[in-house]
Amino acid sequence: MSVDAKARYAQSHEYARQEADLIVVGISDHAQDELGDIVFVELKEAGKRLEKGQVFGTIESVKAASDLYMPVSGSIAAVNEALQADPSLVNREPYSGGWMIKIRPDNAKDLETLLDAKAYASLVGEE
């Protein structure tokens, strides 16, 4: 399983990566592997403001379903529409084509409260 060194991670396996003034969010390679073949991703609409820890969507495989949690507080600036047609992007390229939402953070420094790549790798036993 790969861990994107440029991203930070929530305990609930979402990654958050700074790109210009936005934060790109998806789920880690480890998380997609645990869930298995993703069949459906449902995301809240762009424009919605949510607190850290609130649910921004759900993800479903054949055998499991999981809520997706905001890694930082902010408003949703964009959602990945491509996942509607092809949810397997989350399996194939979780850190690139399989991104889920972009957040305009209330406070960019909130990112620092998350695990760094090394700490996350050790959390999921990937060292």
Partner: peptide
Amino acid sequence: LTAREQHIRREK
């Protein structure tokens, strides 16, 4: 579409 159902989602 079984991910909607109680045996997977339980309380949700």
